[in-house]
């Protein structure tokens, strides 16, 4: 990216700029403008607006400054702690069930000798299904009556009907199940790509040393995938902290707030009241969430850059 100059002495900013422009930097800048405008209008402007709004009380008609009142109000809302607990619960369940599934699937698929493409397509298919369609489909499957799709299947093996999303205890695991199904395909593709980069020599050497398949996976595959595994872990945590679609469409946060997540709470603050909700509280919580996620991202960059340096 840097513009090459032959001068050995440091140059002034003006001079460097002129050089950049004369070397095609200007046209680059022109091409960059639409991106800046779009990014500015649709990302940065709303971010700034919501940052400002988090210190205001507004119904979008009249607005007044309230200092940190919105933050105070949000932090004192008992639903916030319920939402945080639920979000963590979702994240943990997603880690326990959702995180290993793609890895196991990818390792198994990489071992398949025939029809690998077929299995890859099969694994990736759920990602192609529009999320709303997928949720509505799963909602249909989760019909809690004995004639529901899943309950009928369970009935074949003698298991009684389950309440799925209609019970406070089973609602969240049901959401995680559907979310895992929907998201696993993308991660499988990442793992499959990473697996191809593992040098075959290492497997050969392990085999010579008498390692079986599990020892090969544990001692060769896993260490080689370490970076990718860590990246997907961080991305998953960031993703699950923002879980919204599943609880919104499946349960609306119910039953009795059992699936209320932080993002859904933000949505409720803003839109539950048809007359214009509490935009101040919504943006205050958004800001807090954004700061938390930004810290997570910084931690992620620090860790990954340390790795790439080492």
């Amino acid at each position: 990216m840097a513009i090459q100059t032959t001068e050995s002495q440091p140059t002034s900013l003006v001079r460097r700029t002129r050089l950049k422009l004369s070397n095609g930097g200007f046209s680059t800048f022109i091409f960059f403008i639409p991106l800046i405008v779009i990014f500015g209008v649709f990302s940065w402007w709303p971010i700034i607006q919501s940052g400002i709004m988090s210190f205001q009380e507004t119904n979008l008609v009249t607005t007044s400054w309230v200092g940190f009142d919105n933050f105070y109000q949000v932090l004192n809302d008992p639903l916030l702690w319920k939402a945080i607990k639920n979000t963590i619960y979702f994240a943990v369940l997603a880690l326990i069930f959702g995180y290993p599934v793609p890895l196991i699937a990818a390792v198994l698929m990489s071992e398949v000798r025939r029809a690998k493409g077929f299995f890859t397509v099969l694994a990736y298919l759920p990602v192609v299904v529009p999320p709303v369609v997928a949720v509505l489909l799963w909602k249909f499957f989760y019909d809690a009556s004995p004639t529901g799709v899943f309950n009928t299947i369970l009935g074949w093996v003698g298991i009684p009907p389950q309440p799925w999303i209609q019970d406070q205890a089973t609602a969240m695991p049901s959401l995680v199940l559907a979310a895992t199904w929907a998201a696993a395909g993308g991660t499988i593709i990442i793992y499959l790509a990473a697996l191809t980069s593992v040098p075959p020599d290492l497997y050969d050497a392990a085999e010579v040393d008498g390692a079986g398949i599990w020892r090969k996976v544990w001692h060769v595959t896993m260490p080689q995938l370490r970076n990718v595994l860590f990246i997907t872990l961080i991305l998953q945590i960031i993703g699950t902290a923002q879980v919204f679609l599943e609880p919104f469409l499946f349960t609306g946060g119910g039953p009795a707030n059992a699936t209320l997540t932080v993002l859904l709470l933000i949505y409720r603050y803003a839109f539950q009241n048809s007359l214009g909700g509490d935009y101040g509280a919504a943006t205050a919580l958004s800001t807090m969430l954004a700061i938390f996620l930004a810290l997570m991202s910084i931690g992620y960059f620090k860790l990954t850059s340390r790795w790439s340096d080492s």
Binding site: I47, S50, V61, Y267, Y279, L289, I298
Partner: peptide, 27 residues
Amino acid sequence: NKVVTVGAVAALAVTMTACSSDDSPEP
């Protein structure tokens, strides 16, 4: 890259409630 990525993550979190007040109905 860091700034952009961190910003994008933040944007994801806050965009949904950031309705511009410019469009608000007038008194």
